[in-house]
Nucleic acid binder design. Structure first.
Lengths: 229, 229
DNA sequence: ATAAGTCTAATGGTTCAACCATTCGAACCG
DNA sequence: CGGTTCGAATGGTTGAACCATTAGACTTAT
């Protein structure tokens, strides 16, 4: 019925005003807010209070501060990191076990594969093939597992983008970034293992290309199951 | 290979130190940080700088500030709101259409239902039955749709908790909070509609009780499809 | 004696003025 | 023309002061 009363804090009001302006698109990403000494006049507050507001906006990922002449608060496009940061805090704080991350990830990514198979355009397929090639090149040229892993990540991200549903993209990025902290330590980096892994990816792309949703789903599932052993 | 250089900012260092202490459990939720005037001495910084650090921690949801004597920064348990806030910003900023939220939600919740059917204990079932009863009471007593909706939300949340995987719980809360902003305006609140809705919920709980994973999955899917019309 | 009002001190919120640190660009040499 | 120096813009930090809110102790009136 009623909700707790919070004392009005000036900096919060400033945060709200600026955030609204950004989310309404009145200030586009890349544009700069006026310098602190001007903003403080506009809002009729002290610089300290204004700076507290800017800290909050910066933490939210809405602005980024640059130093020096011509520096200032640059409005940022919303990135998946906002989501990833929240997830990261949750995962660390609750000590989420790897198995739970994998369980969740499997649900997300298998459905991503299914939707990608349903919605991929010929251009999308080309993109996927190009990324596969990058991975294969990395293997053939013994470019190190980092190069291969980068291609792998790119493939997963591209699949999520192909779904056309940004929610998948953002959540997947968040989970991925956090799950990789585990994998980076334990993953096998031997070439034979990586080539098996590559075979999985190729099977997924093949299924997506053929538009076979169930096959794409199954291929992704098999792939993730192999990682979870 | 290389990563951009960022100037060291003192408040960031303070944020890191305090956040670490909290995440390591050295300061438990409910405990208070020392007053600002003491903290500023500990870190050997000015109060303004310290306060910028506290603003960041507050924005992250790690602390909450209380006023007056005995007030101060109280360490908070990590709540689903951290995730929900990030999602909310993403959804608003990217103008995610309702259909995409529904698509994603369906994937999450159908799998929650499946896992709940797999893992529910007899005590869990009792809980679910009790919540169903709350919903039915709300209908019978014409207590208003708010009471019914509250029971509905509780049921969904409980199912996600039954999975035993906190990731589901947090993500689902985040999506739920944001999707409800749409529904609140358009949902039918007529009793006949709500009774149909109740039937769906009952079918889900029945399936969960019987441990029939596929049926629970299907029941949840049917339920969400009805909402998405 | 108890209930109501009042005072006090702790603590966060805000302000102001000053100075430091970084960066860009212009002016100035060599 | 290329490198150097300098100055100004701008964020980062500091210190001291005062305001606002709150809990608890104290006082007072009935």
């Amino acid at each position: 019925m009623f909700t707790a009363v919070k004392p009005n804090r000036i900096f919060q009001d400033i945060v709200d005003q600026i955030q609204d302006a950004i989310l309404r698109g009145q200030i586009a990403p890349g544009e700069k807010l006026p310098p602190e000494r001007e903003l403080k006049e506009m809002f009729s507050v002290s610089r300290g209070t204004l700076r507290e507001a800017l800290r909050v906006l910066e933490q939210k990922g809405l602005i980024e501060i640059q130093l020096g002449v011509g520096g200032g608060a640059v409005v940022q496009a919303v990135t998946p990191e906002i989501v990833a940061d929240g997830l990261s805090l949750m995962i660390r704080s609750l000590d989420i076990p790897l198995a739970h991350l994998q369980e969740f990830r499997t649900v997300i990514e298998t459905n991503i594969a299914r939707l990608a198979a349903k919605r991929a355009t010929p251009e999308n397929i080309e993109e996927l093939r190009a990324i596969l090639q990058e991975g294969m090149d990395a293997l053939d040229q013994h470019a190190g597992w980092e190069a291969y892993v980068a291609a792998d990540a790119k493939l997963h991200m591209t699949l999520s983008r192909i779904t056309g549903n940004a929610v998948y993209e953002y959540i997947q990025t968040g989970i991925h970034e956090n799950i990789n902290r585990y994998y980076a330590e334990f993953l096998e980096h031997e070439e034979s293992v990586l080539r098996e892994h590559y075979g999985d990816l190729k099977a997924i792309v093949d299924a997506v290309e053929s538009g076979n949703e169930d096959e794409a789903y199954a291929a992704m599932q098999a792939h993730l199951r192999r990682l979870g052993d």
